[in-house]
Simulated scan of single mutants.
Amino acid sequence: MPRISILPIKQLTLRTPSPLARAWTCARCSSTSPRRSTKMIDRPLRPRRFAPLDPARQIEGDDRPVLKGIVFDVDGTLCQPQNYMFAEMRTALNIPKTTDILDHIYSLPAAEQEAAQEAVRAIERAAMKKQRPQAGLVELMDYLDARGIKKGICTRNFDTPVHHLLTTFLPSSRFNPIITRDFRPPKPDPAGILHIARTWMREGGGGGSLIMVGDSLDDMTAGFRAGAATVLLVNDANRHLAAHQHTDLVVRQLDELIGVLEGGFEGRVEAGDESVDARG
């Protein structure tokens, strides 16, 4: 049984991996429809670059920060996308594709919210029996555990399908904290990622020492606003997000991150920089 702590309250040009990386490689309820309009905020200052995790590649005097941890989304990130759920949820709630599911539920009178939540949870419980792990999931988690990198989850799912995925596919891997739907405000607000950062670092400074890995605009925007580096796990449905200003790096499967982290994470360059755009 994995050790998990669920809060009840409230995607690239690849570097050649090191021998260690090659060894490791061997072995929502979130809407994807257009979101409501939000005011663009100033680009937060964040490193978006981290020193190599491979000790042989670490250089004295390297001013790149050390990666403290990685936050993962669940549906479409740790497990393969189950986007059919969203249409079923909107049918159950009688809302159009352009309406965000959680926004709609939270806008209902308090007496009606639990029934709406249960209608959505029933769809998620049925879908969780069909969960399939993403390619490279186990390899990446084993690598992060061996390197001592903290792992957390920030998802708009509720806790039952999250627990099912972890106990089924990652029974020995530890994630803490685990932010689920009960934590408000949900993504794209950065609050969940910032909570994880405070839990890990016990200090201020936002998410500048973290990476957020996800597959949706909610994930990229939440990570961006938290000051974290962002990694898009790209697929046919979200390919347009590879060029989004909130996306720092793109991978096609999870274990591609091993070579990236071993050699040093380099995200998208700022306008005016002369270095290469590492998104590829």
Rank of each mutant, 00 (worst) to 15 (best):
G272S: 12
I101Q: 02
P109Y: 07
Q82E: 04
G205K: 00
F175D: 00
K10A: 07
A229H: 08
T99N: 03
T168S: 15
I101W: 01
E124P: 02
L233S: 06
R198I: 05
D42T: 02
A27D: 09
T38G: 05
T247M: 12
N157V: 03
A197D: 03
G214P: 02
T160P: 08
A92T: 02
F175I: 02
S173Y: 13
L137M: 06
P44R: 07
L53I: 12
R49E: 05
H246V: 08
G263C: 15
G214Q: 03
P161G: 11
T98I: 12
P177V: 00
T247V: 14
T32P: 10
D73P: 12
G280R: 05
R46S: 11
H164C: 00
R3P: 00
L166N: 05
A111Q: 04
D215A: 09
P65M: 01
L241F: 12
P81A: 01
A127M: 06
F169Y: 09
R49T: 14
Q131E: 09
E262W: 02
D182W: 03
T38W: 06
M128Y: 03
E266C: 09
L210W: 11
F50T: 15
S18I: 14
S30P: 01
F265C: 05
L67F: 08
I179H: 00
L102K: 04
A127N: 00
D277A: 06
F158N: 07
E203P: 04
C29I: 15
G207S: 12
R279I: 02
D63I: 09
V276I: 12
E112W: 13
P186G: 13
L67C: 08
W200Y: 04
S173M: 12
G69H: 07
D63N: 12
K68H: 07
M141F: 04
T77N: 08
L93P: 02
G205Q: 00
M89L: 06
M128I: 10
A146P: 01
M212K: 14
V213A: 11
N157K: 01
S172D: 08
Y106I: 03
T168I: 10
G76D: 00
A226T: 14
